[in-house]
């Protein structure tokens, strides 16, 4: 029988080197993510004022109408923003997937543009355009028309800003998902008589679901922790969880309650995180 010799060092020496390479990111993940999560859980479940385990902080959050309103507003903003984002980005991604020529390149550049604009600049641009006495109002006034009801400092302010801010990533993910739909599959559907809407519903959409789930998960994860746009463009009361946590921490000087709010937000994020992991796993399986 012939024995196959494995060159020495081919397998064994890579082990320690590989571990060394991942050591730094693993350490950072532990230090900056896992540790704060554990610390947050321990601090909020074993508060200073209680003798041991207590749900008192969570009880206070869930029995406080203002906190619940903020949570509701955050969930509402997440839902509405995701829906509008999909309504805007799916047609854009479809166009970029199937269109040819220079116009498609310009549209793609335009769709990616918000990625390079910092949120704070976007917020002030929004105020200058859609805020009271902004560009739109000025134009309407010059035309002798009535002013618009500005979305600035209403619940729609953060929605508009967040949609704009999230378009590039959403379009990128959806376009990449659409890349998985081969041209012959589309041509075969047209060949058997599928018109554009049938084609989209029966052939394209089923292959896009995974990308849509990934987009929704990632967007909602980002929206839950969004701060700048909700803080600058949103209403003062109720407010989204990002500004609420910051105000509880620095204005009300109640770090324990801010930590409780953060832990609750993290709970929701973990839910959507699991959703994301499931979508990615499904995508790979397909």
């Amino acid at each position: 029988m012939t024995k196959v010799r494995v060159p020495s060092g081919a397998g064994e020496s890579r082990g320690p080197l590989g571990l060394l390479l991942v050591a730094v990111p693993v350490f950072l993940l532990g230090w900056m993510t896992v540790w704060p999560i554990l610390s947050g859980l321990v601090t909020t479940l074993f508060p200073k004022d209680a003798a041991g385990f207590s749900l008192e902080l969570y009880d206070r959050f869930f029995s406080d109408d203002y906190s619940l309103d903020n949570l509701r507003l955050t969930l509402w903003t997440c839902g509405v923003t995701s829906l509008i984002l999909l309504a805007v980005s799916v047609p854009l991604a479809l166009y970029l997937r199937f269109a040819r020529g220079p116009l498609a390149s310009y549209v793609q550049t335009l769709a990616m543009f918000p990625m390079f604009v910092p949120s704070i600049i976007l917020a002030f641009a929004f105020i200058r355009v859609l805020g009271p006495n902004g560009t739109v109002d000025t134009i309407l006034n010059a035309l002798g028309l009535a002013k618009i009801r500005s979305p600035y400092l209403t619940v729609w302010g953060p929605v508009i800003g967040l949609v704009w801010d999230n378009i590039p990533l959403t379009v990128l993910i959806l376009t990449s998902g659409l890349g998985a739909v081969p041209n012959p599959a589309i041509e075969a559907a047209r060949d058997v008589g599928a018109r554009p809407l049938t084609l989209f519903v029966h052939i394209i959409l089923p292959r896009m679901w995974s990308s849509i789930f990934v987009v929704i998960s990632l967007t909602i994860l980002g929206l839950f922790t969004a701060f700048t746009l909700p803080y600058v463009l949103g209403p003062a009361s109720p407010e989204m969880m990002g500004p609420f946590m910051q105000r509880t921490f620095s204005d009300l000087r109640n770090p324990e309650m801010a930590l409780t709010q953060a832990t609750i937000v993290m709970g929701f994020c973990i839910l959507f995180g699991l959703f994301y992991v499931r979508s990615v796993a499904r995508n790979r399986r397909d």
């Binding site: 081969p182 012959p184 599959a185 041509e187 075969a188 047209r190 060949d191």
Partner: peptide, 20 residues
């Protein structure tokens, strides 16, 4: 006439079956 309205049917090299 677009393919969906032609009385033709095509068999593609890559099968082009819908995997879902």
């Amino acid at each position: 006439t677009p393919p969906e309205r032609r009385p033709t049917a095509m068999v593609f090299q890559s099968h082009a079956l819908w995997t879902h």
